[in-house]
Nucleic acid binder design. Structure first.
Lengths: 110, 110
DNA sequence: GGTGACTATGCCGGATGCGACATGAACTCG
DNA sequence: CGAGTTCATGTCGCATCCGGCATAGTCACC
């Protein structure tokens, strides 16, 4: 897409909310990436809250365990589309999703 | 798409926001579709607010006029991914986007 | 050490979304 | 009536995304 999708974000090396300009990302891009991170974290949190394994969750989503793992890992092959559909499938409501989208800060891990 | 799912919905006639069960959509699916609609409407509204033509907007998005038209038409070939990236490109902030995502009602036309 | 439950990573074929182009419709002005 | 501007629609080639399989890592418990 845009030229190169910018480095693969250096494995796990990154810190909360600021892959940003460090890599020369435009505002829109970093907003977009951070949104993805928030959503994938929320997804994992919700899955755990429901005490589901990835396998069980995959069944709910009608997908596979590996997809679920990738969703939670924020894998580049996971789109916001999939994240949102998955959250809905776990029962997240529009207003909850709205709060997730809005919150600029990523929640602390549990 | 996916199988049945049973949904209740007692919506009166067929007001804004309910293509719903009428077509046998599951809750998640209709939530997802309505989200798309809200976003595409917001996009058009924002473009107009900025007094941009579709061609100018396409330049901003680094895309084409026809894509912009499809975005606004809620064309099935437009993903939520694209909608969100496009809104960001028009300057929508995360919190504004959050409100859009959350609001169950679609705004009245202008 | 071995087994089982859970999760992560790599890869592949097929599906879908994307930008781009071409064309058409609706409208306004002269 | 053109000609210009704006938006809509159809199609196409290519890139990306997705589901699923296979496999490897991690942890707990015996």
């Amino acid at each position: 897409m845009r030229e190169s999708k910018k480095k693969r974000l250096e494995k796990k090396g990154w810190q909360v909310g600021s892959v940003d300009e460090f890599l020369g990302l435009s505002d829109e891009e970093s907003q977009y990436i951070e949104l993805k991170l928030r959503l994938s974290e929320a997804f994992r949190k919700e899955r755990r809250r429901k005490k589901l394994t990835q396998v069980e969750t995959a069944r709910v989503l009608r997908s596979s365990q590996s997809r679920v793992a990738k969703i939670e890992a924020g894998d580049p092959s996971v789109s916001v589309d999939l994240l949102i559909r998955s959250l809905f499938a776990l029962g997240t409501t529009s207003s909850e999703l709205g709060r997730l989208v809005a919150s600029r800060e990523r929640a602390a891990a549990t």
